[in-house]
Amino acid sequence: DAEELIELVERALKEGREIILLGVRITSEEAGKWFIEWIRRFL
């Protein structure tokens, strides 16, 4: 579910982890915020 995915992304970014989803590397909080917004819009 989308909320679970958002929580995972937020937690990983807070822990300083690198996330790779759909071939996109997300390493900064700014990118994470963009990704979370995208999830909310399309899922």
Rank of each mutant, 00 (worst) to 15 (best):
L21A: 05
F35D: 00
I6S: 03
R41M: 13
R11D: 04
I19R: 00
E4K: 15
I26H: 02
E30R: 12
E4Y: 15
W38F: 09
I6N: 03
E30W: 14
E3C: 15
I39L: 14
D1L: 15
E29D: 10
W38M: 05
R40A: 06
E37G: 06
E30M: 12
E18S: 12
G16K: 08
L21T: 01
L8R: 08
E29S: 10
I39R: 00
L13E: 02
E15S: 11
G16A: 12
L13A: 03
A12M: 08
E15H: 08
V9W: 03
I26V: 05
S28Y: 07
E15A: 10
T27I: 13
V9N: 01
K33W: 10
I39S: 00
R17C: 15
I36T: 03
E3A: 12
R11E: 05
W34Q: 09
E3D: 12
R40Y: 10
A31V: 15
A2D: 06
L43D: 00
E4M: 14
L43P: 00
E18I: 14
E15T: 07
W34D: 06
S28A: 07
A31T: 12
D1H: 14
L5N: 00
E4I: 14
E29Y: 13
G16R: 06
V24N: 02
E10W: 15
L22S: 03
I26A: 05
W38N: 01
I6P: 02
E37C: 15
L22C: 15
I39Y: 06
I36R: 03
I19N: 01
V9R: 01
G32Q: 06
E18V: 13
I26F: 06
K33D: 06
R40V: 07
G23D: 05
I39N: 00
E7V: 11
I6T: 04
D1W: 15
I20F: 05
V9M: 06
E15Q: 07
S28K: 03
A12K: 02
L13P: 01
G16D: 02
L13N: 01
A12W: 11
E3T: 12
I39G: 00
F35G: 00
K14Y: 05
E7Y: 11
K33I: 08
R41A: 09
T27W: 13
S28E: 04
E15N: 08
L13M: 10
W38G: 00
E37S: 08
E10F: 10
L21E: 02
I26M: 05
A2Q: 08
G16Q: 06
V24I: 14
S28F: 09
W34L: 10
E15W: 13
E4N: 11
R17D: 02
F35S: 01
I20K: 02
R41V: 10
E4F: 15
F35M: 06
E3V: 11
G32R: 10
R17N: 05
W34K: 12
G32M: 14
L5Y: 07
R11A: 07
K14I: 08
I20A: 01
E18T: 13
L5K: 01
W34E: 06
I36H: 03
R17T: 07
I26W: 06
R11I: 09
E37P: 01
E10S: 09
I26E: 05
R25S: 07
L43I: 09
E15I: 09
E3G: 10
E15P: 04
K14F: 05
E10Y: 12
F35W: 06
G32P: 06
K33F: 07
V9Q: 00
G23F: 13
R17M: 09
E30N: 08
R25F: 11
R17G: 05
I26G: 01
E4T: 14
A31R: 09
I6A: 05
L21W: 05
L21G: 00
F42R: 04
F42H: 06
I6F: 07
L22T: 02
E4H: 14
E7L: 13
W34G: 03
L21D: 00
D1Y: 15
E10C: 15
A12I: 10
I20P: 00
V9K: 00
L22Y: 04
G32C: 15
L5G: 01
G32V: 12
G32A: 14
I36A: 05
W34Y: 06
I6Y: 05
A31F: 12
K33H: 07
L22F: 09
E29G: 09
G16E: 03
F35E: 00
K33Q: 09
V24F: 13
D1A: 13
G32D: 03
L5R: 00
R11H: 07
D1T: 14
W38Q: 02
I20G: 00
I19S: 00
I19W: 07
I6W: 14
E7T: 12
I39M: 08
E18L: 12
D1S: 13
I6Q: 03
R41H: 09
I19H: 02
L5I: 06
E30A: 14
K14P: 04
A31W: 14
W34S: 06
E18N: 10
E18Q: 11
E3R: 15
L43H: 03
R25K: 08
L43M: 12
E18D: 06
R41N: 08
E37I: 12
W38K: 01
T27M: 12
E15F: 09
V24Y: 08
R17F: 09
R40G: 02
W34F: 06
E10V: 14
I36Y: 07
S28M: 05
W34M: 09
L8W: 10
G16L: 15
W38T: 01
F35T: 01
I19D: 00
E30I: 11
L43E: 01
G16N: 08
R17Y: 12
G16I: 15
S28I: 07
A12R: 03
A12C: 15
E30Q: 11
E18K: 08
S28N: 11
K14E: 08
V9D: 01
K14D: 04
E37D: 08
E15Y: 10
L22P: 00
F35H: 01
V24A: 03
G16H: 08
T27D: 14
A12T: 04
T27Y: 11
R40I: 11
R41L: 11
L5D: 02
I19F: 06
I6D: 03
A2K: 07
A2L: 15
G23Y: 13
F42E: 01
F42P: 00
A31N: 07
L8N: 01
E29R: 10
G32Y: 12
L21M: 05
T27S: 10
E4P: 09
K14L: 11
E10N: 12
W34V: 05
I26Q: 04
W38R: 01
I19L: 08
E37M: 12
W38Y: 05
E7W: 12
V9P: 01
L5Q: 01
I26S: 02
G23C: 11
E10A: 09
L21R: 03
R41P: 01
K14A: 10
W34C: 11
L22D: 00
E18P: 09
L8I: 09
R40K: 10
R11N: 07
R40M: 12
E30V: 13
R41G: 06
A2G: 06
E7S: 12
I39D: 00
I19T: 02
S28T: 10
A31I: 15
E29Q: 13
S28Q: 03
E30C: 15
I20E: 05
E29V: 11
W34P: 00
E3P: 07
L21F: 07
K14V: 07
W38H: 01
V24K: 02
V9C: 14
R25A: 10
L21I: 12
E37T: 07
R17I: 12
I39T: 00
I20R: 03
T27V: 13
L21V: 13
S28W: 13
R11Y: 03
W34R: 14
I39C: 07
F35P: 00
W38E: 00
V24W: 11
L13D: 02
R25P: 03
G32N: 06
V9E: 01
L8S: 02
F42T: 05
V24S: 01
L8D: 01
A31S: 09
F35Q: 01
E29P: 14
E10Q: 12
L43R: 02
F42S: 03
I6E: 03
R41D: 02
G16P: 04
A12L: 11
E18W: 11
A31Q: 14
E10K: 13
L22Q: 03
L22A: 04
L5E: 00
I39P: 00
E3S: 11
A12N: 03
K14G: 07
R11M: 06
R40P: 00
I39V: 09
D1M: 14
E3L: 13
F42V: 08
R25V: 09
R41K: 11
E29A: 13
L21N: 02
T27Q: 07
I20L: 05
L13S: 02
E7G: 13
W38D: 00
R40L: 12
R40D: 01
E29W: 14
G16S: 07
I19C: 15
E4W: 15
D1Q: 13
E10M: 12
G16T: 05
L5T: 02
L8K: 07
W38V: 02
V24H: 06
L13V: 08
E37W: 12
R17A: 09
T27R: 07
S28P: 07
L5F: 09
